[in-house]
């Protein structure tokens, strides 16, 4: 589906705003402003300044969890003539403070949507991930964008992300004049990111569950950047799964990376992780252990047709990651 002309790209250059300048996606986009092309200004809303010395980046301190910030956010965006907003202020790790997560992700998204309306922003790109589908053995393979988002039940800490996505979907329907793009990206393997998945795969020992070998789709960080660059540059309304079209078993990732698998019996590991989490030691919510049991595979055909490019295969993402983390690569 192609739209006639690029009605979004104003000749004056792209005036961009980003919420969450230190999140994985926010940081990548701020570092890759040249990839997007024609960016004149990037206003960052966050509670701490972004890690960037690009002259086009302007930081504006703003806490999405505070009530009433939407008018401040809207007036700043109007002042800078922002036309495109990237809403990336989502948590990438599980946090124990569920109330904060609720205020930031669910209520915070409502505030961002209100600011979009007031400021007359005409393109909104929202960060999401395939994990909103939840992880259960009942998932279809592959999951299309129409699949129900069951992560509220299967991954309790992800409840707020589903609530945010629901709010965004309602907003997109009610306000067709705003081009809303939601990107559900596959699990990212990024040597530069210090988050649970990448950190685990960087280590030498990988926990596995005895008798299970799930399939994984890993997204290459360059492809993540590319899809966001296109979503911010052109109009691509809709919800899109972004993932490679192949999947490889965990055992192959471990073998290719020359890692050591540490198999645990799941009947002991699940309660064990639950105890660690409750005690405040574990860094992952126990429900995420199901990623070592079941597969979460998505169908990215829609994004391939809409964005006109296909991400690298999972194998390439894995081998690039392995090369980069071993320290002998480019």
């Amino acid at each position: 589906m192609r739209r006639t002309g690029d009605k979004g790209a104003s000749p004056a250059g792209l005036r961009l705003a980003v919420t969450g300048g230190r999140t994985v996606v926010g940081q990548r986009v701020l570092r890759g402003l040249d990839r997007i092309g024609g960016v004149e200004r990037a206003v960052v809303f966050d509670i701490q300044p972004p890690d960037s010395d690009d002259p086009r980046v302007t930081f504006h301190s703003l806490d999405l969890t505070q009530p009433g910030i939407e008018s401040e956010m809207a007036s700043v965006m109007q002042e800078h003539g922002v036309t495109t907003l990237l809403h990336a202020a989502f948590l990438w790790n599980t946090v124990r403070d569920v109330e904060w997560a609720h205020e930031l992700e669910s209520v915070g998204t409502d505030r961002v949507l209100a600011a979009v309306l007031v400021a007359g922003v005409r393109r909104l790109v929202v960060t999401s991930s395939v994990t909103v589908y939840g992880i259960t053995h009942r998932n279809a393979t592959p999951l299309t964008e129409q699949a129900p988002l069951v992560s509220a039940r299967t991954l309790p800490p992800w409840r707020e992300k589903v609530a945010a996505e629901t709010a965004v979907a309602r907003f997109a329907e009610a306000h067709p004049e705003v081009c809303v793009t939601v990107i559900r990206s596959a699990i990212l393997l990024d040597p530069e990111v210090d988050r649970t998945v990448s950190r685990t795969f960087r280590g030498r020992f990988i926990p596995t569950l005895l008798g299970f070998d799930p399939q994984f789709q890993f997204l290459h960080p360059d492809d993540l950047m590319e899809v966001y660059a296109r979503a911010l540059r052109e109009d691509h309304p809709g919800v899109f799964n972004v993932a490679p079209d192949d999947a490889i078993p965990l055992s192959e990732v471990i073998r290719d990376g020359r890692k050591v698998a540490v198999p645990l019996p799941h009947l002991l590991a699940m309660p064990g992780y639950r105890v660690l989490w409750t005690a405040g030691i574990g860094e992952v919510h126990p429900s995420f252990l199901n990623f070592l049991r079941f597969s979460l595979i998505v169908d990215a055909a829609r994004a391939r047709a809409e964005f006109g490019f296909s991400p690298r295969s999972t194998r390439e993402a894995v081998s690039d990651f392995v090369r980069a983390t071993r320290g002998d690569g480019p």
Partner: peptide, 17 residues
């Protein structure tokens, strides 16, 4: 859908394993 040239080999399993 251009062929990706000399990349690493494809997975030995399909999407369902």
């Amino acid at each position: 859908d251009a062929p990706r040239g000399a990349g690493p080999p494809r997975s030995r399993t399909d999407l369902w394993g």
